[in-house]
């Protein structure tokens, strides 16, 4: 393998941190969701890289990555449905203004 393991891990860490920044700093609920998708992808890169470099004969890494993709699909569907329902009720998707459960 031509690429050192550390480069992959550094790229995944950078992508995770970008996603974390997006999730923490966005006002818009959909923007927060985009940040979460970036973080899930960074974790998935790590899973596949560890499979390829540390246990290339096993299949565990790819299976786990597939499970993460499945969870991400469920999360995106449920999350966007909640955002659309909230938009219908309150006419806003700004997370600071969605405070129905706060008193």
């Amino acid at each position: 393998m031509g690429i050192p393991l550390y480069w992959w891990l550094a790229v995944a860490a950078a992508l995770f941190c970008l996603g974390l920044y997006g999730a923490l700093s966005r006002k818009n609920a959909i923007g927060v969701l985009l940040g979460i998708e970036l973080m899930l992808n960074a974790v998935n890169i790590n899973l596949v890289v560890f499979w390829r470099y540390i246990t290339p004969q096993a299949l565990t890494g790819q299976i786990f990555a597939m499970f993460v993709i499945g969870i991400a699909a469920a999360e995106a569907a449920a999350g966007l449905a909640i955002i659309i329902a909230a938009y219908r009720q309150r006419d806003t998707v700004v997370v600071d203004e969605l405070d129905m459960m706060h008193w």
């Binding site: 923490l24 700093s25 966005r26 006002k27 818009n28 959909i30 923007g31 969701l33 985009l34 998708e37 995106a76 569907a77 966007l80 955002i83 659309i84 938009y87 006419d91 806003t92 998707v93 700004v94 997370v95 600071d96």
Partner: peptide, 23 residues
């Protein structure tokens, strides 16, 4: 799916300029 959700709540996007919160 995300693009659809953005377009369904698009009227709001145009009004608001600030996408980042105070923190």
């Amino acid at each position: 799916l995300i693009l659809f959700a953005i377009m369904l709540s698009r009227g709001l996007m145009a009004r608001r300029q600030h996408q980042r919160n105070e923190q």
